[in-house]
Each structure stands twice: as structure tokens, then as C-alpha cells.
């Protein structure tokens, strides 16, 4: 994982060659801008000719872009995944997504899960990062423990929690032991709680991952800034909102992007814990795509949902990126 660099440092705010000795942009008239553009073009050309991209780009286009586009075409057909023929059906499959209650619910649920995971995971990740960024003696051990779940495969974590949350599992046993037996329930078998349990499982696994990214951002903040703040009398809350949070903007961008995309694509944890049940109450777009493609044999409908999923990921990712980058620029 590449450590995100604080946006305020000269390293990430522009080409060093265009900066003045103090790090501020040089005053430029029209002529100066032209010189800078020429110089930029010259530097780019001398570093990496554009055709260096061709081998990787060709493979990417051949392996990812072309199959994806060709596959997307099938969303406009009635192909069942078996026969060699299909019929064009236009936007019928897309219309069916909104007409089919289970699919419509899955779209909404996918967004709710993604937002919930993003907010809670990053909130906890940030608090953990602030906690282990202090001078406490056990900080290194804590970092290892808190990050450990992130190195496990999602399936292992899902099966672990499936057992813990079973009616006869450890969670209910614990509630019983502390006198809260009235709270016991089939956590993954109850449509009121199953989805939130899955959100919890994802957060439990990946909060440490977010923590590491935030921690890298925190450790990139120069000590001098803290010292200056201390001299100015800033206390911890003021220091957090005026120094740490603005300088963590790149880390926030990365974390939010990763968690929103991961949340929208969520499959393993749902499939392993509830299989989309009970009564479809945890069905997400990803699990529904699998179900329609491979259990029902409705390939073209599944592909239409996959296209919607792709669009959803793209819209959320780009919108979020644009907003966060604006925030980063303001902060720097």
C-alpha cells in the first residue's frame, strides 16, 4: 500500500521546477505560462515516450475493455447462457430491474450497505489511527492486532462470524452470561438484523485497513506543525480539526474511495453468511447477479444488473473523488 503524501508538502503540490525558492508558485505572465508548458512537454517527452504505454494498454484493452463491452451488449438480449442464439430485447432487462421487487430492493440495499460500511469503517479506522498514533507503549502491538483481520480472506472471516452469530454461538452465549438473554436471537437468520450483522462483519475486518492508511497520513504530518500548534496553545480537539484532519485529506480520499467501491461490490461476506437470505433480506446486486446468472439461468438479466452495478460504482467513485479532491485542494 502506497503511503499517501500530505497535500501540503511540496512533493505533491506541483512540479518543483515551476516553484519559487519558498515553495510558492512563481509570478507568471503569458510568456511565462508558455515557457512552463514547453518545459513540461519537454520533461514529459524525455521521461517516458507515450508509446511506452502501448504494451500494457493493448493487454488492458484486449483483456478488460473489449470483453466488458462485448459482454455488456448481451444485456440487451434474451440470452440464457446456454444456447448459441439470442434475440434483441432492447432495454427490457433494464426496465425489469425496476419492475422486479427483489432487484429494486437489492439496488437500494447495496447503496445502503456501501454507505454504512464507508461511514462506520472510516470513522472507527480514524479513531483507531489517532489512538495508536500516540506514545502509548503497546502501540506497535495494537497496530498489529487491529490490522490482523484485514489480512484474512473475507470468506474465512465470514465463516468465523457465521459461527459466532449462530443461535447457539458465542455471541448469544455471552449475552446469556451477562444476563441479557432476552437480547438473544438468530442474528443472521432474522431479516431485521442480518444486513447490519454483515455491515458489522465488514467493518470488523477492514477498520484496521482504514486505520493503517490514516496512520500513514498522520505520521506524514511534520512534527514542527504540532510544535507550532502547541506554542499557539491549540488543544487536542482544535489540533485535530485544524491540523490533522485537513492534512489527512489524501488519506480520507483513498479510504472513502476504497470502502465505497468495496461496499458496492460486496459479495463474499453475504454469500458465506446468509446467501442473500433470510427471505432475500441481505441480497445485494452482486449476489443477485450470481443467483440470476447461475441458479436461474437468466444470463442477460444478470448482465443487465452487472452493467447497473458498474455504472453505480463509477458514479459513486467519480463523484466522491471529485468532491474529495476539491476538499484536498482547499485544505492545501
Amino acid at each position: 500500500m502506497t503511503q499517501p503524501l500530505p497535500a501540503s508538502t511540496p512533493r505533491v503540490t506541483g512540479d518543483p521546477g515551476t516553484r519559487g525558492a519558498t515553495g510558492s508558485p512563481p509570478a507568471q505572465g503569458p510568456g511565462g505560462q508558455k515557457r512552463t508548458r514547453r518545459r513540461r512537454r519537454g520533461l514529459t517527452g524525455s521521461r517516458a515516450p507515450w508509446w511506452f504505454l502501448l504494451p500494457a494498454l493493448s493487454i488492458y484493452v484486449f483483456v478488460v475493455i473489449v470483453p466488458s463491452l462485448r459482454g455488456s451488449v448481451l444485456a440487451f438480449t434474451d440470452w440464457n447462457g446456454l444456447t448459441p442464439d439470442w434475440n434483441w430485447v432492447g432495454f427490457e432487462n433494464f426496465a425489469r430491474i425496476w419492475e422486479t421487487e427483489i432487484a429494486r430492493d437489492a439496488v437500494v440495499r447495496t447503496v445502503v450497505i456501501a454507505v454504512a460500511v464507508t461511514v462506520v469503517q472510516n470513522g472507527i479506522g480514524l479513531l483507531l489511527a489517532l489512538g495508536v498514533n500516540t506514545r502509548i507503549k503497546s502501540r506497535n502491538l495494537l497496530r498489529v492486532f487491529l490490522f490482523a483481520p484485514a489480512v484474512l480472506t473475507p470468506l474465512v472471516v465470514a465463516y468465523l462470524w457465521r459461527n459466532l452469530l449462530a443461535p447457539t454461538g458465542a455471541v448469544n452465549a455471552l449475552l446469556d452470561a451477562v444476563g441479557l438473554d432476552s437480547w438473544q436471537r438468530a442474528w443472521l437468520g432474522d431479516s431485521d438484523t442480518a444486513m447490519w450483522m454483515i455491515v458489522g462483519i465488514v467493518v470488523w475486518q477492514f477498520a484496521g485497513y482504514s486505520m493503517v492508511i490514516f496512520l500513514a497520513g498522520l505520521q506524514g504530518i511534520p512534527e514542527e506543525i504540532y510544535e507550532a500548534a502547541e506554542l499557539d496553545g491549540a488543544r487536542s480537539v482544535r489540533r485535530f480539526f485544524s491540523i490533522e484532519l485537513p492534512l489527512l485529506a489524501p488519506a480520507v480520499t483513498i479510504n472513502l474511495m476504497l470502502s465505497i467501491i468495496g461496499g458496492i461490490k460486496l459479495f463474499d461476506q453475504v454469500y458465506a453468511t446468509t446467501g442473500g437470505g433470510p427471505a432475500n433480506s441481505t441480497e445485494t446486486l452482486s449476489t443477485l447477479i450470481y443467483r440470476y446468472a447461475f441458479n436461474s439461468g437468466q444470463f442477460s438479466f444478470a448482465i443487465a444488473m452487472a452493467v447497473v452495478l458498474t455504472i453505480l460504482v463509477s458514479v459513486f467513485a467519480f463523484a466522491q473523488y471529485a468532491v474529495l479532491r476539491r476538499g484536498e485542494r482547499r485544505a492545501s
Binding site: A166, P167, D190
Partner: peptide
């Protein structure tokens, strides 16, 4: 049937 049918798996 037992309690928690919805959350009980086949192995259990």
C-alpha cells in the same frame, strides 16, 4: 422445531 431456525445451518 428448535428456536432460531432461520439462523441454524445444516451442520448444526
Amino acid at each position: 422445531f428448535n428456536d432460531g431456525v432461520g439462523g441454524t445451518d445444516y451442520n448444526t
